[in-house]
Amino acid sequence: MSTPTIAAAVSPPAADPGAPALVAPRRRGLPYKVISWTVPVLLLVAWELLARAGVIAPNVLPAPSSVGTTAWRLTETGELPTHLWESLKRAAIGLAIGGSLGLVLGTLTGFSRLGEAIVDRNIQIVRAIPFLAILPLVMVWFGVGESGRYFLVALGTLFPIYLNTVLGIRQVDPKLLEMGRVVGLPKLRLVRTVILPGALPSVLLGVRLALTNAWLALVIAETVGAPAGIGFMATNAREFLQTDVIVLVIVLYALIGLTTDLFARFLERRLLAWHPNYHGGSQ
């Protein structure tokens, strides 16, 4: 007979909160990569062949190779780098403004009832407005200057970061907070060592969503009356029916999106090295 326990029979041991969550193992093997890239590459080849054969008219959809040539030409003239730099700058500044506002407001709401009472309702109301609906107003307010574009990007990035910061702070394990009290952590240290790291996975998810929104906002902002930037390049090209430039810009947006996502994942892997869902928690 094993040791008689009074309640073990009725209360099974609680699930270990620190146990790694169940995640499907990442498939990083060669076959998976090869297979996943096969179809896009085949499509690209087909597109090239069809365009060269004249099945697709060049002014409808130029061949990938001609888009490549255009990219090279515009890079050589310095046009592409200038516009690209302009767009990146807008995204970065807008994101910095919107992101830090979202973080600060989210922290306020997450921490204090008063903060929540003051901040949350307003944010929820503004968030309910469809993004595009305020575009005319933004143009009236800011005219054709840069600040309107910063404003749009900031607006697009504020909400995801705000919401995920609040959520992250709320989800911090109260048992860990209690442990902090048991070892006598002062309030501010408790915030720094328990609450903010606990909220970090959620905040970083917010950053990722914000990056997506930032590019979306930028596309909108640049296609209406910007004097430079890759969105301007596309609008300009439309006037002259330069389909290759338009396609190039679309491809650029996609590449930028991919790059920022990679960057966000890199951040997650660095900052969440301890987290079982991000990097197995092992060195």
Partner: peptide, 11 residues
């Protein structure tokens, strides 16, 4: 010492 270890996973 609680029933659960309550270690900070990020440290």
């Amino acid at each position: 010492v609680f029933q659960e270890h309550r270690l900070l996973p990020w440290w």
